[in-house]
Computed example of a mutant assay.
Amino acid sequence: MTRAYFVTVALFVLAFSFAFASDPSPLQDFCVALKNSSDSAVFVNGKICKDPKLAKADDFYFGGLNIAGNTENIFGANFTPVTVDQIPGLNTLGISVARVDYAPNGQTPPHTHPRATEVIVVLEGTLYVGFITSNPDNRLFTKVLNKGDVFVNPIGLIHFAFNVGKTNAIAIAALSSQNPGLITIANTVFGSNPPINPDVLIKAFQLDRNVVEHLQKLF
């Protein structure tokens, strides 16, 4: 086989690897999600579209990110998403946004977005942020962010943010998916439904049975 053949195959594979790195590209101007379509027998990778002729400006609008979220919870933080569920016009566009509010010492605990890279922009306060690379290196990348700073969390990697300032903090997160998904590690592992067999978690985390059972009750 010629060298040109191998180059062609390599470029073909590379093109497909980029094609599946984020939500599929739209094939029309927009595809406004049809609300209350869950009972439909048709399944698509996204949401079913309404007739484009019936689209209106409100399908592309959301108001309210100026309103602070309630941070009176165990984590001292509040996540206000603006995904395709809030803006039907985001359907197939491969992007969403969220406001995150942090009380002092508040945090978004270690979590992942299985379908999106996240770009976080600090509007107020000081955040300690970071992400961890996949096995086997598990490298930790961290940064202290102040107002106006930007940080990127690559798709699928575990990441976190912690308010290290003495005042409330606000951040805007942009995500490369209309439906990025959210997997909070502790909640998922210790709060699954039904619960994971404690023997699995005892061995996986090298914890005492009492600790595992306490965490499962907690989450």
Rank of each mutant, 00 (worst) to 15 (best):
residue 141 F to Q: 10
residue 147 K to A: 11
residue 157 L to I: 12
residue 96 S to Q: 09
residue 123 L to F: 11
residue 103 A to C: 06
residue 125 G to Y: 10
residue 105 N to L: 08
residue 130 G to M: 10
residue 129 V to Y: 07
residue 152 V to F: 04
residue 106 G to E: 03
residue 119 V to G: 00
residue 107 Q to W: 07
residue 141 F to W: 09
residue 117 T to S: 15
residue 133 T to K: 02
residue 126 T to D: 01
residue 120 I to D: 02
residue 135 N to P: 06
residue 114 P to V: 05
residue 121 V to G: 00
residue 111 H to F: 13
residue 151 F to A: 01
residue 130 G to R: 10
residue 139 R to D: 09
residue 115 R to H: 05
residue 126 T to Q: 02
residue 144 V to L: 12
residue 100 V to Q: 00
residue 108 T to W: 09
residue 128 Y to R: 01
residue 96 S to F: 06
residue 144 V to I: 14
residue 113 H to P: 02
residue 112 T to S: 13
residue 144 V to H: 08
residue 111 H to M: 07
residue 120 I to Q: 02
residue 107 Q to S: 11
residue 118 E to G: 04
residue 135 N to W: 07
residue 140 L to H: 14
residue 140 L to D: 10
residue 156 G to P: 07
residue 125 G to M: 08
residue 154 P to T: 11
residue 123 L to Q: 10
residue 115 R to A: 06
residue 101 D to G: 04
residue 110 P to R: 07
residue 154 P to R: 05
residue 98 A to G: 08
residue 151 F to C: 02
residue 148 G to A: 01
residue 148 G to R: 01
residue 142 T to N: 04
residue 137 D to C: 06
residue 157 L to R: 12
residue 95 I to L: 15
residue 112 T to E: 03
residue 103 A to S: 11
residue 119 V to W: 03
residue 125 G to P: 02
residue 107 Q to Y: 14
residue 137 D to P: 02
residue 120 I to N: 00
residue 130 G to T: 13
residue 130 G to I: 11
residue 146 N to R: 11
residue 128 Y to E: 00
residue 105 N to Y: 15
residue 95 I to R: 14
residue 130 G to V: 14
residue 101 D to H: 03
residue 93 L to G: 01
residue 147 K to I: 08
residue 121 V to K: 01
residue 93 L to I: 10
residue 158 I to N: 05
residue 139 R to F: 14
residue 138 N to H: 15
residue 110 P to S: 09
residue 157 L to S: 14
residue 116 A to D: 02
residue 118 E to V: 09
residue 98 A to D: 06
residue 141 F to Y: 14
